[in-house]
Design a protein around this nucleic acid. Sequence first.
DNA 1: AGACAGACCTGTGAGC
DNA 2: TGCTCACAGGTCTGTC
Length: 271
Amino acid sequence: MPELPEVETTRRGVAAQVTGETVTDVVVRDRRLRWPIPEDLQARLGGRVIRTVDRRAKYLLFRIDPHTMILHLGMSGSLRVVPAGAVPEPHAHVDLGLSSGRVLRYVDPRRFGSLHVSAGDGGDHPLLARLGPEPLSAAFSGAWLYQRSRGRRQAVKAFMMDAATVVGIGNIYAAEALFRAGIHPANAAGRVGRARYVRLARAVQDVLSEAIAAGGTTLRDFVDSGGRPGYFRLALSVYGRAGQPCRACGEALRLMQLGQRSTVFCPACQR
DNA sequence: AGACAGACCTGTGAGC
DNA sequence: TGCTCACAGGTCTGTC
């Protein structure tokens, strides 16, 4: 489900509601996420204060005194803050009871998400160690993309979805950014020129910023921490619009498979 | 090293 | 109405 804008939307909503709260108790209903939820969650988090909620790539980082809880929403995960005693829906795998009496609840039907606890700030955790730059940081630029892509035969779309290139870009925003930059998604990454990568980096930053401002993209089931959908779907140019006319030129948008993922593009605008 | 396919898991919508 | 199938927002792991 979530790409960077949806994770960031979740982070903002959750942070506003749980920062400064003490974790009073932990309920794990199903440990079977992508990796099993650690057995010692209660022992490590119970009685401790949530200092901040940060984000690295699509991972949410809960700073809970000496520990960091590292949470990934996978494909279908969501976090909600609900009243104490709220009846757990199906797939509500984890509850963190809070000192205010409310509950931070993690729901994930497909269980592609993950929950780890790391000592310290989590920066040395294997999941975070080899990630590329944040797309909305100064470390990300057209020059970086150009340099990193030299010699690569991989399709530029797959290259952009590789977290070692840049984090946070999944199937929706890769397609949208390539459309905005006028780049055909199947082009070999190593044959895209410097000027086009400058445009692409800019397009990535624009589309992500706009999506965050809209509260993310809700295709089916994304909701923020208050249960509200995101509205960026209305602004999607190509994702989910195969066969429909390009909003720029009117040409029918085409669908192709790239790296086992559906990809929509405009055959006229993207070269 | 880089580029793929496969794997994980459930829900939904389309088509019969 | 009910069945089967294809597909879905991610990303780690294994293989060539």
